[in-house]
Structures are given as C-alpha cells and as structure tokens.
C-alpha cells in the first residue's frame, strides 16, 4: 500500500515553504474577489465608477489652492494641476494597495475562520482591484496631460515612458509588501492599526508629491531619497513631464528595496496565516 499523502498538516512549516502551485490553483478565486471588490463598491449609487474621479480631482483642486496659491510651493514650471495630479494618482495606487492589504487578517477573520484557501489570494486581489482603480484615475491624468501637452510647451515626455509598468510594479510591490507585514503584525499587536492610519499620511509628506525633489535643501535630500517611493514618483514625473530627477541608481535602489520588503512580507504573512486564528 502506497503512503502517498496529498496533504500533510504539521505544526510548523518551513519558513520558505510557500505553496505557489496551490496559489495558482486558486486563480479563479483571485479574479472573483477582484470582481466582487469592483462591482460591489458602487452598487446602488447613481454616479457609479465616476466616484473614482471625484476624489483625485477634489484633492488636486485643494492642493492647487493650498500648496500652490497660498503656500506658493514651486512645481518646477509644470502647470500646477498636472503636477499635483501626477503625484496624487501615483500615490493613490500605493496608498490603496497598502491600506487595503494592511487589514487582511482582521477584516477577513470571519472568512478565514471558516474555510481554507491560500490566504495570499486576498491581498493579491486587493492590489489588482487597486490597479483597476488606478487605471481609471490614470485616464483622468492622461486627459489633462494631453491637454497641456498640446496647448503648452513646458512638458517634455521622454521615450523612457515605457518604464511605466515597472513603476507600477514597484508601487504595487511596496504597498503589498508593507501591507503583508502590517497585516501580520496587527493580528497580535492591535496598536499598529492606529499607526497605519496616520502613518500613510505622514509618509506622503516625506515623498515629493506636493513639492519637487529639487526644492529640498541638500542636507535633507539624503533622507528624502531613503524613501524608495521618492525615486518612483520622481521617475514618473521625469519621464512624463520632463521635470523630476531621473536617477538610475535611485530606481535600482527602489527595486532592491521593493524586492526585500515584498519577500519579507510574504515570509511573515506565510508564517502568520497558520496560527492567526488563535490570536486575532
């Protein structure tokens, strides 16, 4: 008689034991979760997906007013609406990816307590839903972008625009990686929940969203550049608008950082998912 077991459940899994094959088997669930997120948000609303536009547009208007007109922060010669909107749209993708994944365990405790499926499916689906939201908001940016491109001559796009998918991957990777780490830690130490709320807000001010990196005095530049998102945003602005600082080293740093955070996140998440039902 062959003792060929398909499933062996044991107390401790190897740290590196990530079942990718199993993850792939559940790919249909991934897309159904994405569908659920996108379809249900705006059910029984009149404007529907138009709400995706409202938030960035209003934020942009406020930024133009507060930071542009009142505080008079430079935008490196780029039209203020376009400058802010480019930052907002990119930042939103990171913030959405992070916020939506950071409470994976606590928010889905009910579901996770009843049925087994690879837990990683849930945060992955959130990042994909965020991508859909990003694409819609990016169309808004594109419309504004084309308007300024043809009506003014301050915008100088670069052929490096093809790097956009990599920038998105980095944003998604960072959001997901941090989200996985925080979602794992909050199962035991709920204090972190409060940190996340304003942490994202603070991090935004440490990223060149409302100001260009070039306005930062030399001695602070080092700290701002430690933030990997800085390089992603600056690259985005540089390839689309021709105003940011494009630095290959900075981008490489962001890549390595993202890979590290994402790996760490997946490992911690994988370890937590086995026992979190006992502590959540």
């Amino acid at each position: 008689m062959s003792k060929q077991w398909d499933i062996i459940i044991q107390p401790k899994r190897n740290v590196l034991d990530i079942n990718l094959k199993q993850l792939y088997k559940y790919k249909d669930l991934l897309f159904l979760f994405v569908k659920r997120d996108v379809v249900t948000i705006y059910k029984q609303t009149i404007l529907g997906p138009i709400w995706f536009f409202v938030q960035p547009v209003l934020t942009m208007v406020i930024y133009v007013f507060v930071f542009g007109k009142i505080a008079n922060i430079s935008t490196d010669g780029i039209p203020q609406p376009l400058f802010y909107l480019s930052g907002i749209v990119m930042w939103n993708y990171f913030a959405e990816s992070f916020n939506q994944t950071a409470d994976t365990f606590t928010k889905n405790a009910n579901l996770f307590g009843k049925v087994f499926f690879p837990r990683l499916i849930v945060p992955l689906s959130k990042v994909l839903s965020a991508l859909i939201k990003f694409v819609i908001q990016f169309l808004l940016f594109l419309a504004l972008y084309l308007y300024f491109l043809f009506n003014t001559n301050v915008i100088h796009p670069s052929y490096l625009i093809v790097l956009l998918p990599i920038l998105l991957l980095l944003m998604a990777g960072l959001g997901l990686g941090f989200g996985l780490i925080f979602s794992s830690l909050t199962t035991k130490y709920k204090d972190l929940k409060f940190l996340i709320q304003f942490g994202v807000q603070l991090l935004m001010y440490a990223t060149p969203i409302i100001y260009p990196l070039s306005t930062i005095p030399g001695k602070y530049q080092f700290w701002i550049k430690l933030n990997p998102i800085t390089h992603i945003i600056e690259t985005f602005k540089s390839i689309f608008l021709g105003s940011g600082q494009f630095s290959t080293n900075g981008l490489l740093y962001a890549c390595v950082f993202t890979l590290f955070i994402l790996t760490l996140g997946v490992l911690i998440f994988n370890k937590t998912e086995q026992k979190f039902m006992d502590t959540v």
Binding site: I7, I9, Q10, P11, K12, F116, K275, M277
Partner: peptide, 14 residues
C-alpha cells in the same frame, strides 16, 4: 480543515 495549525502532531490526508 487547515484553518489553524496544530501545536504538535500531524494530519495526513489523501
């Protein structure tokens, strides 16, 4: 059902 992991021991299934 693999909702939580055991403290000791093992479950094997086909």
């Amino acid at each position: 059902s693999q909702i939580t992991a055991p403290t000791t021991g093992a479950i094997k299934a086909k």
